[in-house]
Design a protein around this nucleic acid. Sequence first.
DNA 1: GTCTATACCACGATAGAC
DNA 2: GTCTATCGTGGTATAGAC
Lengths: 220, 220
Amino acid sequence: MARSDSRERILDAAERLFAEQGVAATSLREIGTNAQANPGSIYFHWKTKADLVRDVFRRRLEPLDAERVSRLDAAERASAPDPARLEEVLEALVGPMLWIASGSDRGGPGFLRLLGRTYNEPDRDLVRMLRRDHGATLERFRAALARALPDLPEEQLFARFHFALGALAYTLGSEASSHLALGRRRRPVSGRDVLRELMPFLVAGFAAPKASSSDLRASA
Amino acid sequence: MARSDSRERILDAAERLFAEQGVAATSLREIGTNAQANPGSIYFHWKTKADLVRDVFRRRLEPLDAERVSRLDAAERASAPDPARLEEVLEALVGPMLWIASGSDRGGPGFLRLLGRTYNEPDRDLVRMLRRDHGATLERFRAALARALPDLPEEQLFARFHFALGALAYTLGSEASSHLALGRRRRPVSGRDVLRELMPFLVAGFAAPKASSSDLRASA
DNA sequence: GTCTATACCACGATAGAC
DNA sequence: GTCTATCGTGGTATAGAC
């Protein structure tokens, strides 16, 4: 390409290292070395580290957002004038992550891990950037879920949407074998398998009865 | 106390700053200043930063583990020889977090945020420490869930346990107003409220039908 | 037990040769 | 467009006075 390929190599290396170690713990020197480029040359392509980080996410999130919105549009057109069904909305939200995972040119499982971790990222600037650039997509899904579940109060829908994103993020962010040592047994947990398991869990959770008769005790 | 109180002040300040900024982004200088102690004096109490981090978590996780196990024991005794019911097991897992949130001497909401973030922490050493010291508790809960849901294949139970931990972690780790700008409306999302919402979501998710007829597509 | 002072190093970022 | 050399800052950690 016209721009040189070291730019892409640097983005690839940064993405991989960010996923493995976190953004804060990854230095530009390390990225440069891993990309077989000189750390100094990063500053030809980007002004600051924050700018590089932004582009690492943008390169993957823009196609992901587009794919999600496109599937949601299709589902809503198909069922119009009725709202899209719960399963369809969730499919449009979760399915594209499988699409990401299956193509190494779209980031693959490595980017999913990075994305999962980033949902909980304490870095304020990074969070602000993600919200600004990609918050609108999630808001569209929240609204679609509200239409699919008209009887669920807004606060509860909101909470459940959070739980769903959490389940998704945590699952993607963890390594294949959980870092919390749940079970020693060997399990072939591919991204595809996990996301397929996730669907019925989320559908049931969203459709759960809204009243919580559960007397959750604070004290023993 | 005999040991001096600067030790506790340092632990308090570290806990708060870790929750706000993340472990990697918080320096010992900053902790010392916030604790009204000299950064250098941290090295009297701990050998390295990693040791301090370990104690920040230990101070809160040991009571949390004990409370969780104690409630699970009680539930299992009450229903013996039958296994504890799904709701009871989940209550023993989630309820103690509410107990944590309600007492500032147990960390309060601040520690819950830190804990939520840490589930996705990229720091390998920290993760190894948490697994070593507290993995046994989660394994006990996984086993109790398996007994409560004898018909669910092990892989699926495992995946759903992951989803549950993810929903919990993400919810706790996020600020009250989601960082992803879902809805602009004001919501009073206390820790107590959110955890109460979580219970029916998890119960329904775990009890969901196991077969996934969903044809999750990878391509558009 | 807590402080000051400081060593040492890696970081992000810049300047300028090529 | 990429490299080397280097700056200033701020990180962890240590030594030693009090």
